[in-house]
Each structure stands twice: as structure tokens, then as C-alpha cells.
Design a protein around this nucleic acid. Structure first.
Lengths: 147, 147
DNA sequence: GATAAAGGTTCCTATCATGGGAAGGTCAAG
DNA sequence: CTTGACCTTCCCATGATAGGAACCTTTATC
């Protein structure tokens, strides 16, 4: 099966399939005489795995680790759990940070009359001299951008 | 005042100050004979504004809009409110998406014994043929990456 | 006045996952 | 044999940020 059909079957774009090969998530596949990649059922399965992991926000690095554990008969589930927990920690930190932004912003919005007059507590707050209200920005690390 | 001191006073790095000038958030400042940028109090104030807006997750584009409204005497607060509400909508969507990831992942983690045995529901789920459990990925637009 | 340290300038590179597009080769159907 | 769909590689762009090189300026010290 060609890359296009593999893309359709796995839900991963052809572009990304090539990228995953390049960064080592996918083994280089066999090629036809003309240089076309060809895929078998196991490749599709692996692509499904990757896509699902991406949907859960795992980075390429993390997915590489998960993949190497996936069919390792001697793996210890503790290892997988550790990776997942680290990741969920990152997710939670990011959520909290966004939540704090949203809360602060909501407070400002609630105070804004939102009419034709120029008085606006949102701008007033942004322009305040000191940073009294500024939430400490959280360094959340490489959590995957949402797709 | 030189760019270094402006950075110290505003909490925006010199690198970013130059970047903001380049993308039009800051007006090009005056230069000394040697080509050094120099800043006055109003510039620091503007940098504070920018930093605060960045802390709230506004993109450079949005900040540009907010800045142009900031000292516009004829602005309507409704306009500012609209920008803020659009932005908070993006934040909420992003939060929801991350929350869903975290929930799914937590469910899987809870089912994983996390011991020395290889049986692992996390990997089992990721490797499932169909995408039954896959949450629909949300296109959340240009919400700022966390800092 | 010479020198060294600290700070400024521009320009290039990288991040991370993803997509767009060009230039060109291949395959299958009409 | 042409047409259109598909494949290949290669380059570029995204957004906000940082790192670093090469080079110039200012300031303080000897």
C-alpha cells in the first residue's frame, strides 16, 4: 500500500508519515523500484498508536519511548506509568497556568462595561505601572501544541 | 536609558524588546550617535503593558490591537471587551482540550498496576485498532505557548 | 593613553509539529 | 500517448523565544 492509502487508513497525513520516518518513530519502509514507500498492516497499526499518543499530547520523544516499550515483552508497566504520569503532570501544569490566565481575564472582563464609552478596566489593568496583578508565568515545558 | 536597563526595568528581555520593535509593537526608538537605542519612561510603561498582556496569553497580533486602543481617547470599551472575550474563548477551548487529554490519560494510569509485570492498559489502549476512545482534537488557534 | 570588562549592534540558527508548494518522476485509465 | 492522480525530495513558513558569533562602544581602572 502506498503512503496515500496509509495516510487515509491511519489518519496521519502523508507529510507527517514521512516526518515520523525521518525522526525515527517509523522504521524506513521498503520501497518499490520507482522509490515509492510501501506499507503493511503492522505499519498502519503503529501509525494508529502514534496518532493516539499525539492526541493525548505526548511529544515525539515520549512517543518514541512508549513505542519501544510497546512490544517489548520484558517491559515493566511501571516504566510506562512513569512516562504517563510525567506527561500528565505537564498537562496539569499547563492547564493550571491557562486557568489562571482565564480567571484574571474574566475578572477584568466582568468589570468592563463594554459599551461606547472609552473607560475600560481591562486596558487600565494592562497599563498599570507595577505588576501587582501579574500571575507568575509558569514554565510548562514541551507540552504538545494542540492540533 | 539603554536597552539593558529598559529590560531590567520592564521585565522584558533585551532580545524581546528588539523583537517587539521589529514586529511593530514598539516604535523604533531614538539612537545615540553610536547606534545604541535609548528608552524613556513612556517606553518602559509600554513594555510593561506588553509583558502583562503576554502573561495573560495574548498573541502579538492581539497586543497590537490592544495597544492601539490603549491610549485612543475615542475608543469604545466594547471593542476591548470583544478582543478579551475572543481570547478567553480560545483559552477555554485550549483548557478543555488539555483537560480531556488529562482525564483520558488519568483513566489509563489508574488502570495500570505500575509494577514489574509487562501488562499495561496504557499501551494496550494506545495500540487499539480503532480510535474508539480518541478524543476529537480541537483546533484551538494561536493561543500563546506558555512561558 | 592603553586596556579590559561590560554592554551594545546585526545576523544567523534552533526550537516543535505541521503544512504549503515547487520541480520532477511514475502509474493507471482512457 | 496523454491526462490526471499520485509519489519523490527539497525548501520555506509558522510563533515567541533564546543562543551565539562577529564586531563596535562605553566606562572604569591602571
Amino acid at each position: 500500500m502506498n503512503i496515500g492509502e496509509a495516510a487515509r487508513m491511519s489518519g496521519v497525513s502523508a507529510k507527517m508519515i514521512r516526518y515520523y520516518e525521518q525522526v525515527g518513530l517509523m522504521q524506513p519502509t521498503g520501497r518499490t523500484a520507482a522509490g515509492y514507500r510501501h506499507y503493511v498492516a503492522a505499519d498502519i497499526h503503529r501509525l494508529h498508536f502514534i496518532r493516539r499518543a499525539r492526541d493525548l499530547g505526548f511529544s515525539v520523544i515520549e512517543i518514541k519511548e512508549l513505542l519501544s516499550l510497546w512490544r517489548d515483552r520484558s517491559r515493566q508497566s511501571a516504566e510506562v506509568k512513569r512516562i504517563a504520569q510525567t506527561h500528565i503532570g505537564e498537562l496539569r501544569q499547563k492547564i493550571e497556568s491557562l486557568q489562571q490566565m482565564a480567571n484574571t481575564l474574566q475578572t477584568l472582563i466582568d468589570c468592563c462595561s463594554g459599551d461606547e464609552r472609552p473607560d475600560c478596566p481591562i486596558l487600565a489593568d494592562l497599563g498599570k505601572k507595577a505588576e501587582a496583578a501579574a500571575p507568575v508565568p509558569v514554565r510548562t515545558g514541551a507540552v504538545t501544541p494542540l492540533r
